[in-house]
């Protein structure tokens, strides 16, 4: 059995070399498709993770009046911790000093704005999160209107969870994810058709060979296996080249930009690159084997 596999493998290599033009066509097809698919997968997973991160990061801030008494503060704290849906341990008290320190960090020590302000105009606040990001609004409502909280003004709700902004980001991310998924499906179908067609051309050019093999008494599998191995070699080669190309383009075009725009709060990260490569290689393997195996069926009816 071992020698048979060696035979099939050698057969595949031989015909790959013998049909260089179609081999190249198949490899390039896989390469292009996998490259686009790779970009799609990386971007898609990036957007998906990024939007998830935004959802998870939605923080509810309840701003306190400077005049709030310790008793009022205790009541507010109790209300927050006892509200169902509030993530345990997410509650944080940000004092006025903490707030100004944070702003200084964000703007830089020498900020003109800070130099112009007298004293500390920032209120203290409680910060907390909802377990389920979708419950944020409901959780915030439970705290609203408690004595000791700054009264909400138009455009400055209290508690504030960046309602409008977060909603817009989440909506956009959702749309992008859906569009990406749809593109992925269309791309996958196009890839299979394109690769199937290339393989069909290659087999069609050699249908006489297949006919002869059958006449000499080759079983279907005997004819089919070298073709499938051929398809797999083309698929893996194309996928590997696509991975290399992806790595290069990521390094030269995207790496700096993503790091700079997404700095702070840590990169949300997309699909880990090694995983992406493994996925691409397996997709190439599967498409190559399935594509040629299925396409062969028509030509084996001799």
């Amino acid at each position: 059995m071992e020698t048979r596999w060696k035979f099939f493998f050698l057969e595949a290599i031989k015909s790959l070399r013998g049909n260089f033009a179609t081999t190249m066509a198949a490899v390039v097809t896989v390469l292009v498709v996998m490259f686009i698919a790779g970009i799609g997968m990386a971007l898609g997973s990036y957007v998906y993770n990024y939007s998830n991160k935004i959802r998870d990061d939605v923080t509810i801030r309840a701003y306190l009046e400077d005049s709030a008494t310790p008793k009022q503060l205790a009541t507010i704290q109790r209300t927050i911790t006892s509200t169902p849906g509030v993530a345990p341990n997410s509650l944080q008290f940000i004092s006025k000093d903490d707030a100004i320190l944070r702003l200084k960090k964000q703007l830089g020590e020498d900020s003109e704005l800070l130099k112009l302000t007298l004293g500390n105009p920032l209120p203290a606040s409680f910060e907390f999160k909802a377990v389920d990001p979708d419950q944020t609004a409901a959780v915030a409502k439970a705290v609203a209107g408690l004595p000791g909280l700054e009264p909400p003004q138009s455009g400055l709700p209290n508690p504030d969870y960046g309602a409008g902004k977060a909603d817009r980001v989440l909506k956009t991310a959702g749309t992008i994810t859906i569009v990406m998924a749809a593109m992925g499906v269309v791309l996958a179908i196009a890839a299979v058709l394109l690769i199937g067609n290339t393989i069909r051309l290659s087999i069609f050019a050699r249908r006489r060979e297949v006919e002869v093999m059958k006449l000499v008494g080759a079983t279907n599998w005997f004819v089919r296996l070298p073709f499938m191995i051929e398809g797999m070699i083309c698929g893996v080669t194309g996928a590997a080249l696509a991975a290399i190309l992806l790595a290069i383009s990521y390094q030269t075009l995207l790496a700096d930009r993503i790091n700079s725009t997404m700095s702070g709060g840590g990169s949300p990260g997309s699909l880990p690159f090694p995983l992406l490569v493994v996925l691409l290689i397996f997709a190439g393997l599967g498409i190559g084997a399935l594509g040629s195996g299925l396409t062969m069926r028509r030509f084996l009816q001799v």
Binding site: T3, R4, F7, M213, V216, G217, A218, T219, F222
Partner: peptide
């Protein structure tokens, strides 16, 4: 090839 299809030994 005619012998290989039968799985004859090398």
């Amino acid at each position: 090839y005619a012998l290989e299809v039968q799985g004859q030994r090398r």
